[in-house]
């Protein structure tokens, strides 16, 4: 099975469209969306509508903290995120808001676990930013491959037979074999708001037949989205972030 993994779309229509076009070109059997479809970006309704349609066709979708904050206020959010979600909330059609609230926090597919943040207490939205922070996910889950998002910076961790967790270098665009003597955790890069200094939309392709994971980047018109963001009256900082990818 070839599984396209998208996460942290954040209402960025152009980035999502570019990624879905790339996904179509690569050819996949299934799509997984690891949450945060809304928040920050200027086109949350379009993005939710698109992902809902994909879910109808069998895409697997889990809930992110921004999706969660549409229905339930999240006081742990920083000011910028809260400002954006306060802008987003009233725009969301009731059906979309209800759908977001109904999403599960985790999903399992064979030996793969899908989750937005750390698999350890998924509703606590813990960032997996280091080997140390990845360890609890490996502990609570027996899955061979854990796929998550939330950080907006792609990362790959392996956990060997002795339980040692190691961050691995990611060769962008090249398949990494997920050797079976280890378990793996991939933090997939953000579609709609990358923060690793590369302003291109990120996604990942997991090929279970070949047992390989490929992190990919796709360019899109960041300036156009930044302009729409500014026109919508969203904070300037968010527009700058898209242009620089940080």
């Amino acid at each position: 099975m070839r599984l396209a993994v998208l996460t942290d779309i954040h209402g960025n229509r152009d980035a999502l469209a570019a990624v879905l076009a790339d996904v179509a070109v690569r050819g996949v059997d299934r799509i997984a969306v690891l949450g945060d479809i809304v928040g920050y970006g200027p086109d949350p309704e379009w993005c939710v509508e698109r992902i809902m349609a994909l879910a109808e066709e069998g895409a697997l979708v889990v809930r992110g903290n921004h999706d969660h904050a549409i229905a339930a206020r999240d006081d742990a959010m920083n000011a910028l995120a809260r400002a954006a979600i306060d802008w987003t909330r009233p725009r969301m059609p009731a059906a979309q808001a209800a759908w977001l609230a109904s999403l599960p926090l985790t999903l399992a597919l064979d030996d793969i676990l899908l989750v937005h943040a750390s698999a350890n207490d998924p509703g606590d939205w813990i960032y997996v930013t280091s080997e140390h922070k990845a360890m609890p996910s490996f502990r609570v889950s027996g899955a061979r491959v854990i796929l998550c998002g939330h950080v907006h910076v792609p990362a790959l961790m392996s956990c060997d037979l002795s339980g040692r967790v190691r961050a691995q270098r990611i060769p962008m665009g090249r398949p990494v074999p997920l050797i079976r003597s280890r378990r793996w955790l991939a933090v997939v890069g953000s579609v709609g708001q990358p923060r690793d200094g590369v302003p291109q939309a990120g996604w990942a392709l997991l090929d279970t037949g070949r047992n390989e994971l490929t992190f990919r980047r796709v360019p899109y018109d960041t300036a156009a989205v930044a302009a729409r963001l500014r026109a919508a009256g969203l904070p300037e900082e968010l527009a700058r972030r898209l242009e620089k990818g940080e």
Partner: peptide
Amino acid sequence: DQLPDLLAE
């Protein structure tokens, strides 16, 4: 060159 270097660790 294009794979993680498991030995380095």
